[in-house]
Amino acid sequence: EEEEKKKEEIARLLGVSKEDVERILKKNNLDIEQLLRRVQREN
């Protein structure tokens, strides 16, 4: 699934687990696209 791939990509870029990414998304109330763009910009 596309969303899972995005979570895995974010996890890889941040050096965290996919579960961490899911927690970040919930905690910050971000959607996956916003987080992915933010992470890609910083790297």
Rank of each mutant, 00 (worst) to 15 (best):
E33D: 15
N29P: 03
N43E: 11
K5Y: 09
L13S: 03
A11G: 06
A11F: 01
R38N: 10
L25S: 02
A11R: 04
L35K: 00
V16R: 05
E9V: 12
Q40A: 07
D20S: 08
E33A: 05
L25R: 02
E22L: 06
V16G: 02
L14M: 11
E33G: 05
L13G: 01
Q40G: 05
Q34A: 13
K18H: 05
R12F: 07
L13D: 01
K5F: 11
Q40E: 09
E42T: 10
E3D: 14
K27Q: 13
E9S: 06
V16N: 02
E33L: 05
E22T: 08
K6A: 10
S17F: 04
L14H: 00
V39G: 02
L36K: 02
E33N: 13
A11W: 01
L36V: 02
I24W: 10
N43L: 15
V39A: 14
E4Q: 07
D31V: 04
E22M: 08
R12D: 03
E2C: 10
K7E: 02
E19K: 11
I24E: 03
R41S: 14
E33Q: 05
R38G: 05
A11V: 03
E2G: 11
Q34S: 13
A11P: 00
L13K: 04
V39F: 04
A11H: 01
E42R: 08
R12A: 07
L36N: 01
A11Y: 01
N28K: 09
K27W: 11
K6I: 15
A11K: 01
R38H: 15
E22A: 07
V16Y: 04
R41D: 13
V21S: 00
Q34V: 10
D31T: 15
N43G: 11
R37S: 08
V39R: 02
R12Y: 07
E8A: 13
L13R: 06
D31P: 04
E3S: 11
L36Y: 09
E19P: 05
Q34G: 10
N28M: 15
K7P: 01
N43Q: 14
E8S: 10
R37T: 08
L30S: 04
V39C: 14
E1F: 13
E9P: 00
I24V: 05
E1S: 14
I32T: 10
E2L: 10
N28S: 14
E33M: 04
K6L: 14
E19D: 11
I10L: 09
D31N: 13
D20M: 15
L36W: 12
D31R: 06
G15T: 02
R23W: 12
E8Y: 12
L25E: 00
R12N: 06
E2W: 12
G15L: 03
D31C: 08
R38W: 15
R38Y: 15
L13Y: 06
L35E: 01
V16L: 10
R38K: 13
E1P: 12
G15Y: 03
K26I: 13
G15P: 00
E1H: 12
R23K: 12
R37H: 11
E42W: 05
K18I: 12
E1L: 14
K7W: 05
E19F: 09
L35F: 07
N43V: 15
Q34Y: 06
N28Y: 15
Q40W: 04
L14P: 00
K26V: 12
E22K: 03
I24G: 01
S17C: 06
I10E: 00
E9I: 15
D20G: 05
R41L: 13
L30F: 08
E22Q: 06
K26W: 08
K5H: 10
E42N: 11
S17W: 02
I32K: 01
R23E: 11
K27F: 13
V21D: 00
S17D: 05
L36H: 04
K26Q: 12
D20R: 09
K5D: 09
A11N: 00
K7C: 06
R38P: 01
D20F: 14
E8P: 00
K18T: 09
K6W: 11
S17T: 14
L36P: 00
S17A: 07
L13W: 06
V21Y: 01
S17R: 10
E42Y: 06
L25Q: 02
L13V: 05
V16P: 00
E4W: 06
R23G: 07
L30E: 12
K18V: 13
K6M: 15
E2H: 09
K26L: 14
E33W: 09
V39Y: 04
I10R: 00
N28E: 15
D20Y: 14
K7M: 11
N28H: 15
N29T: 04
R12S: 05
E42K: 07
K5I: 10
K6P: 02
L14F: 02
V21P: 00
Q40V: 08
E2T: 12
I24S: 02
L14K: 01
V21C: 02
A11E: 01
L13I: 14
R12I: 07
K27L: 15
N43H: 15
V16I: 15
L25W: 01
E3M: 14
L36A: 04
L25T: 02
E4D: 12
E33T: 07
L25K: 01
S17N: 07
V16A: 04
D20K: 08
I10D: 00
R41K: 14
N28D: 13
D31W: 03
E1T: 13
L30D: 04
E2A: 11
R12V: 05
L35D: 00
G15N: 08
K27M: 14
E2I: 10
R41Q: 14
L25F: 02
K5G: 09
Q40H: 08
R23S: 10
E8T: 10
E4L: 08
E3V: 14
K18S: 05
G15E: 03
R37M: 08
K26C: 14
L13Q: 03
I32D: 01
V16M: 08
N29V: 04
I24H: 03
G15W: 03
L35A: 02
K6E: 03
K18D: 02
R23A: 13
E19N: 09
K5N: 10
V39D: 01
R23H: 10
L36M: 06
Q34P: 01
L36F: 06
